[in-house]
Design a protein around this nucleic acid. Structure first.
Length: 271
DNA sequence: GTATGTACCTGCGGGC
DNA sequence: TGCCCGCAGGTACATA
């Protein structure tokens, strides 16, 4: 599943498209386009120049000329891949952008959860997102303030994009393991030192995962914009490792459902 | 505010 | 081999 490190890797891999113009747009699954209606989406995209490609949370934000923004969320199974000609396998192709140099940007999405939005004000789409965890402005104090008074469990809070933007199920589990915190801990019961550990773990895990170009599981679901898988999966400590020894203390990793989500943790060193 | 459930979807693995 | 079932999960939304 694409989370912050995967989306960051994709965005880095798309930088070669800056300066290109969108020559043509093909929408094969209409519900991929959240706003506006498909006809308007296609018409307004045609001829636009790609000015900038960046990331906000798990959103890919493409700034176009004419004060227009194309926002893309990959959700569960979305892939953005640059190619030429027709894709070898197009059963899951939902949207294709043909560019003026002959290359194409493909959006594949087997589960059809991914969404695109073409808007004048990207803030409208991403305004509810919490801070970017890798920005300098994301401090221990900021995290402490966001957790203060929250009686909810840590795991669902880390998945809440309004608290911190970019974490998903994989990295939430990894972050909690790194911080030595149990996924069921109440946020308002953390000590100052534990909040600092959590803050450090969020940044370390995400930075290391970006350095590894993201996590590609056995299903091969995630690939970068160049079609290459990420290298981080072998470095996962707990995610989908139930029964295997904790890398820190050797205790078998446990799996439980927390807030309806598969959650992996070490019952001994996460307290 | 918090917890839980449902919908959106398809692919996959398990059980028979 | 083929069928059915349940599960996986990010987000929005509804309900308790």
């Amino acid at each position: 599943m694409p989370e912050l490190p995967e989306v960051e890797t994709i965005v880095r891999g798309l930088q070669g498209l800056v300066g290109r113009r969108i020559a043509d747009v093909e929408v094969r699954w209409e519900r991929t386009v959240a706003v506006p209606d498909v006809e308007t989406f296609v018409r307004r995209l045609q001829g636009r120049r790609i000015e900038e490609i960046k990331r906000r949370g798990k959103w890919v934000v493409i700034r176009l000329d004419g004060d227009l923004f194309l926002l893309i969320h990959l959700r569960m199974s979305g892939r953005l891949v640059v190619g030429r000609g027709n894709p070898a396998e197009d059963r899951h192709l939902r949207v294709a952008l043909a560019l003026d140099d002959g290359s194409r940007l493909f959006f594949f999405d087997p589960r059809k959860f991914g969404r695109m939005a073409l808007v004048e004000d990207p803030g409208r789409v991403v305004e509810g997102l919490g801070p970017e965890p890798l920005d300098e402005g994301f401090t221990v104090e900021q995290l402490r303030d966001r957790l203060a008074g929250r009686r909810a469990r840590l795991k669902p809070l880390l998945l809440d994009q309004r608290v911190v933007a970019g974490l998903g199920n994989i990295y939430a589990d990894e972050v909690l393991w790194r911080a030595g915190l149990h996924p069921l801990r109440r946020a308002d019961r953390l000590t100052e030192e534990e909040v600092a550990r959590l803050h450090r773990a969020i940044r370390e895990v995400l930075e290391e995962a970006i350095a590894g170009r993201g996590t590609t599981l056995e299903d091969g679901q995630y690939v970068g914009a160049d079609g290459q898988p990420g290298d981080f999966a072998p470095r996962l400590a707990v995610y989908r490792r139930a029964g295997q020894p904790c890398p820190r203390c050797g205790t078998p990793i446990q799996r439980a459902r927390v807030g309806g989500r598969g959650t992996h943790f070490c019952p001994r060193c996460q307290t």
